[in-house]
């Protein structure tokens, strides 16, 4: 179901459905459950579903580019931090020495993490960097 502005803010309209990675919902995350050791950082991580919901809302209020960013973000939720930082580094000027390095990262995003939008985004960068000579050696 596609959400609209009427569903916003989710934490107020449907707190029970807002949950972290391990399925613990907002009302279940309390100071007492933290003190009891029942809450980990994984319970405090946003899910792809929540980002998709925010993308729907953003689109409904006329912010299509913001929605796309949330959708790219949704794809990165399951991508490990180290790989995210590795790809970020590769996207910086002169880090990748050839188009192929970026295309390889895109392929991993697509193959391993089903991050289709992110993959296309990296491919677009690869094409642009080639056109603008960004694969030159930097001292």
């Amino acid at each position: 179901m596609t959400l609209t502005r009427a569903d916003y803010p989710l934490a107020e309209t449907q707190p029970g459905t807002v949950a972290g990675k391990r399925g613990k919902s907002l009302p279940e995350i309390t100071l007492d459950s933290v003190l009891a050791g029942d809450v980990t950082m994984e319970d405090l991580r946003i899910t792809p579903q929540a980002l998709q919901a925010q993308a729907d809302i953003a689109r409904d209020v006329g912010r299509p580019t913001l929605a796309l960013n949330f959708e790219r973000g949704a794809e990165l939720v399951e991508v490990p931090q180290d790989f995210i930082m590795q790809v970020y580094e590769l996207l910086r000027p002169g880090r990748a020495k050839s188009k192929e390095e970026l295309l390889e990262a895109a392929a991993t995003m697509r193959g391993t993490y089903q991050a289709e939008r992110i993959a296309r985004f990296i491919e677009e960068a690869a094409e642009t960097y080639a056109a603008r000579g960004l694969f030159t050696f930097r001292f």
């Binding site: 916003y8 803010p9 989710l10 934490a11 807002v18 949950a19 972290g20 907002l26 995350i29 405090l44 991580r45 946003i46 899910t47 929540a50 980002l51 919901a53 925010q54 809302i57 953003a58 913001l66 949330f70």
Partner: peptide
């Protein structure tokens, strides 16, 4: 950060 409401 769970709901992401504040990302809007």
């Amino acid at each position: 950060r769970l709901s992401g409401d504040y990302l809007q």
